[in-house]
Nucleic acid binder design. Structure first.
Lengths: 199, 199
DNA sequence: CAGGTTTTATACTAATCAGTAAAAAACATG
DNA sequence: CATGTTTTTTACTGATTAGTATAAAACCTG
C-alpha cells in the first residue's frame, strides 16, 4: 500500500509500522502483558504472526516498542502545556487536563499503560522496570525544571508530587472514576499546590 | 494437623486455610493475575489442585479471597497509627511508615497488591474493579474522618491526597526505589501536608 | 474393626500459549 | 518475462494453561 521511495525489491509491506504499533499499544493497555495473547495482537493489528515477528521481534520486544510509542505520544501531549503556558498554575492545570483526557477518553482503555500495566509487570521484569523508571524519572525532571523556572526552587511542590498526583488520576480512571470526577480532583490538586493568595 | 473441635468425620484437612491463602497472596502480589499459573499457586501453597478448588473455588475466586485477605492484614496495620497516634502529623507519618514497610519489605514482593496488581486487572474485570474501588474508598473515608477529627475539615489536605501519595509510594517501590528513598519521599509528603509554622 | 465421609494424590482433558517452518504471492530489476 | 528478494499465508510445533474425574488414603462414629 504505502512504501518508502526506495524499494530494494521484494514484496512490499502491506501495513504501516506505526499504525499497527498503535493497535498493539491499545491491546496491551487494555489487557496487560500476560493477559494479551499473540492472537489478540495479530487480530487487532491486522497482520499475521510471521509479519509481527519479522517487524517487532517476539512478544516482549513488541511490548517494549509499545511502551516507547505510548511514551512518545502521550509525553508530547502532556508536556505541551508545560512548554506553552507561561503561568505555572495554568501550566500544571493543562498538564492534568491532558492526563485526564488520556486516561478517561472514550475509545481507549482507562488508566495509563505505564502507570498501571508496565508498573505491574515491573516486579518480575527488570528490563521493563528500568525502562519506565527512566521514563518517569525524565517526566519528573521536566516538571522540576518547569517549577524551578517559575520560582518554585524550594521544592514545594516538587515534580515528584505533581507527577504522583497525575499518576493517581490514571489509577482512579482505571478504577472507574468519571471524567468529571477526575477533572474535579485534578482541580483540587492544582488549588492545593498553588493556592490563591488570601484577598 | 490442626482442626476445629467438632469434626463431622472424614479425612481432616492437612493445611490451614489462612496460611495457604497468605501464600496465594504472595504469588499474586509478585506475578499478577494472568501471570500466575495454578502450578505456581499449588507449589507455593503446598497443596494440590483439587484441594485448592475444594477450598477456594476457581482461580478467580481465589484471587478475590487473596484481595480480601491482603486488605484485612494491611489495612489493619496501616490504620493503626491513625487510631493510636493523637498528633495528626505523626499519625500520617506513621501511616506512611507502615506503607513503606509493606511495599519495600524484604521477603515480600515490592509494591501493593491492590494498587498495582488488582488495579491493572480492574480494566477488564468489573468484579475486581468494584471490590477494590470499595476498598480504597473506605480507606479514603478513614483518612478523611481522622483529618476532620483533627480540625482539617477544610479539606486541605484531603484524604484522597493522603491516599494517593501513599499509593505513589507503592508504585515507586515496584519500580525499584529503596526503603531509604521511600522514607525520605514520605517525609516530604508529611512536611508538605503539615508544614511547621514559621518560627 | 467395619461403614460412612471427607480430603488427598495422580492422572487426565481440551484449549490455548508463544514461536517457527515452508511455500505461495507480490514486488523491482535485468 | 525470467530472476532474485522480501512479505504474506497457512499450517504446525511442543509446552503450558485452567479445570476435573477417579481412586486411594485418613479420619470419626458405631
Amino acid at each position: 500500500m504505502k512504501q518508502d521511495s526506495k524499494h530494494p525489491g521484494g514484496r512490499p509491506k502491506s501495513f504501516d509500522r506505526e499504525t499497527v504499533l498503535d493497535a498493539a499499544v491499545r491491546v496491551f493497555w487494555e489487557k496487560g502483558y500476560e493477559g494479551t495473547s499473540l492472537d489478540d495482537l495479530t487480530q487487532a493489528m491486522g497482520i499475521n504472526r510471521p509479519s509481527l515477528y519479522a517487524t517487532f521481534g517476539k512478544k516482549h520486544d513488541l511490548f517494549l516498542a509499545a511502551i516507547d510509542r505510548y511514551s512518545a505520544v502521550q509525553g508530547m501531549a502532556q508536556s505541551a502545556p508545560l512548554r506553552e503556558e507561561p503561568d505555572i498554575k495554568l501550566a500544571i492545570a493543562g498538564y492534568y487536563r491532558e492526563i485526564v483526557r488520556t486516561v478517561s477518553s472514550d475509545g481507549t482503555p482507562r488508566g495509563c499503560l505505564i502507570g498501571s500495566v508496565a508498573t505491574e509487570v515491573a516486579e518480575r521484569d527488570p528490563i521493563v522496570r528500568e525502562k519506565i523508571a527512566g521514563n518517569l524519572g525524565r517526566a519528573e525532571q521536566v516538571l522540576d525544571q518547569r517549577l524551578s523556572e517559575s520560582g518554585f526552587d524550594t521544592g514545594r511542590p516538587s515534580g515528584a508530587m505533581i507527577l504522583s498526583a497525575g499518576l493517581s488520576l490514571a489509577q482512579r480512571a482505571r478504577l472507574g472514576s468519571s471524567t468529571e470526577d477526575l477533572t474535579a480532583i485534578a482541580q483540587g490538586y492544582v488549588d492545593h499546590f498553588f493556592p490563591d493568595p488570601v484577598t
